[in-house]
Computed example of a mutant assay.
Amino acid sequence: MFGLSELALLLLVVAAVLAAKRLPDVVRSAGKSARILKAESRALKNAPAPGEPKIVQGEVVSRDTAAPGSPTAGA
């Protein structure tokens, strides 16, 4: 009759035929998941260590050059 390997191959072929309509969606979803995982792992690698201060770049503005209507303008 059929051995285990023949039954497994037959089951694989039947599953591929029945799932052929959904296969592109499944592959697309797997690709999106892989891209998200890659981006998140890259973000974790570049994140500062816990307890390390976060440095925010800015500039000091004097009262003379402050924008009109700002809280420091004309005070």
Rank of each mutant, 00 (worst) to 15 (best):
P71E: 09
V17S: 08
V17W: 07
L18A: 07
E59G: 12
L44A: 12
A39F: 06
A49W: 06
S41C: 05
T72N: 07
L11N: 11
K32Q: 07
E40K: 02
A47L: 00
V56Y: 01
G31Y: 03
A43G: 08
S5M: 15
S70H: 02
A16L: 13
S62K: 10
A19G: 10
D25V: 13
K38P: 01
E52D: 02
V27M: 00
S29M: 13
I36V: 13
R63V: 14
V61T: 07
R35H: 06
I36T: 10
M1D: 08
S70P: 03
G74Q: 01
G51I: 06
M1S: 14
E59I: 13
R63F: 09
P53N: 04
S62F: 11
L23R: 02
P53S: 04
E6L: 09
A47Q: 05
K45Q: 12
L18Y: 05
V60E: 09
L10E: 15
I55Y: 00
D25E: 10
A19V: 05
I36G: 01
D25K: 11
A16G: 09
A47S: 07
L11D: 11
S41Y: 08
G58A: 13
S41V: 14
A47M: 04
D25F: 12
G69M: 02
A66L: 01
D64C: 00
R42F: 10
R35C: 05
K38L: 12
